[in-house]
């Protein structure tokens, strides 16, 4: 049987110049549940589908607020995301302490990119198994960055990562020209619609499994979960959507 000898570690190039361990780490991102990010000229929105291990367990956090002006959404290994988000919090606090100003988003995105790259070039380490969408507003306006385990960081207008995210990206590409001038409410609607497009047949967005992070227009980064997302779901998909889980035990 064919055995790939070049995929045991991240310090071996294949004859084609590929690093399989890094590519496999990229696959871990595709196993995670889907997250979406969009920016307009004024706002940045993150939306995520949360998963629970079993009926009685809680849902895995997907959107993590970092500083008052930005947050991240993750797809892949949540514990790796926690390491990176702790680092981002530390760096952001340091920026506020030493210079009295909020962290620049491209700067922090590149810093975690550089950190991740080290893991792809040294033996005894593994690449991070998580992809992140870093989104917020800094002195240059709203931004959205996509981070991959390879250390690749790209600034995007809108994007989606995670399981079946191609469907969400198709939605985003189709509606791309509407985002720049969209209002906050429209942007949230688009993000939820993109998220919905990537769901498998038997799933739907509910107040339990949907997270939304919003920042911009002078407001700080706010994470919406539980009942707080119910009006958003209602305005995106009509009143019927998510009703089932909005039931309160009587």
């Amino acid at each position: 049987m064919f055995r790939n000898n070049y995929d045991n570690d991240s310090v071996t190039f294949s004859p084609q110049g590929r690093i399989f361990q890094v590519e496999y780490a990229g696959e871990a991102v595709k196993q995670g549940s889907v997250v979406v990010g969009i920016v307009s000229k004024t706002h940045a929105v993150l939306a995520a589908l949360k998963r629970n291990a079993e009926e009685l367990s809680s849902y895995q956090k997907k959107v993590i607020p970092i500083d008052t002006h930005y947050g991240v959404a993750l797809a892949g290994l949540a514990s790796d995301a926690r390491v990176l988000s702790n680092f981002m919090r530390q760096e952001s606090l340091r920026e506020r302490l030493t210079y009295g100003r909020p962290m620049n988003l491209s700067e922090i995105a590149n810093r975690i990119g550089e950190r991740a790259q080290i893991n792809t070039q040294q033996y005894g380490r593994r690449p991070y198994g998580v992809g992140l969408l870093i989104s917020g507003v800094d002195r240059n306006g709203p931004h959205l960055f996509e981070f991959q385990p390879s250390g690749m960081v790209n600034e995007m207008l809108a994007t989606s990562i995670g399981a079946r995210s191609q469907m969400a990206r198709t939605y985003l590409e189709k509606n791309l020209d509407q985002f720049a001038d969209a209002t906050k409410e429209e942007l949230i609607k688009h993000a939820l619609s993109a998220l919905k497009d990537s769901l498998s047949q038997d799933k739907e967005l509910t107040v339990d499994n949907t997270s939304v992070g919003v920042v911009g227009g002078g407001d700080l980064f706010k994470l919406y979960e539980g009942q707080e997302v119910s009006p958003m779901l209602a305005s995106a998909f009509g009143e019927g959507e998510g009703e089932e889980s909005m039931e309160v035990d009587t």
Binding site: T98, Y99, G100, R139
Partner: peptide
């Protein structure tokens, strides 16, 4: 100019 006088003063004080 991304660092203003106030940022600079904060930095120097540290």
């Amino acid at each position: 100019a991304s660092l203003d006088a106030k940022n600079l003063h904060t930095y120097l004080s540290k």
